[in-house]
């Protein structure tokens, strides 16, 4: 298993871990507060905006821990740069990510047409963001294994 594959598996696990815990926390808050009207939009906007820095910081910490542990176990140093092979895989994965997010966006907007609550729309948006990232990582792992 190459370094890139191991790194992407770690990123997938950390994405599931971070999003899972954060979403569970936000959903509990949503149930407890019972917000309505403009406050509801403010609540979900805050939840989405906070998710971005929380994800970046936590995943950075997890990645540093991974580099240290992997270095100790395998004596393998992390590549210091991305070459053309990495970049072409990143681009292909980004295409998958955009497609899934746009699909999720349309589903979220469509849910409003079918009389769903705004909260449902925001939850679909949050999940489409998570799924787009998860699928992009899975696609990267697949491409590193199969080749391009």
């Amino acid at each position: 298993m190459t370094y890139q594959v191991k790194k992407n598996i770690m990123q997938l696990v950390s994405a599931i871990f971070v999003f899972g815990i954060y979403f569970w926390y936000v959903y509990q808050q949503y149930l407890e507060r019972n917000v309505e009207g403009v406050e509801l939009f403010r609540f979900w906007a805050t939840a989405i905006l906070i998710l971005i820095p929380v994800t970046i910081v936590l995943r950075l910490i997890i990645e540093i821990i991974f580099i240290i542990i992997n270095g100790i176990i395998t004596k393998e140093s992390a590549p210091s740069f991305s070459d053309e092979f990495d970049k072409i895989i990143d681009l292909k994965a980004m295409r998958v990510s955009h497609f899934i997010f746009i699909l999720g966006f349309f589903v979220a907007m469509g849910s409003l047409l079918f009389d769903s609550t705004p909260s449902t729309m925001f939850i679909i948006l949050l999940f489409s963001g998570f799924l787009s990232e998860a699928f992009s990582i899975v696609w990267k792992i697949f491409l590193y294994q199969r080749g391009v």
Binding site: T2, Y3, Q4, P79, D83, E84, F85, G147
Partner: peptide
């Protein structure tokens, strides 16, 4: 100027 993994691929 590439990574070892690229040569492997």
């Amino acid at each position: 100027g590439v990574t070892r993994q690229t040569i492997v691929a």
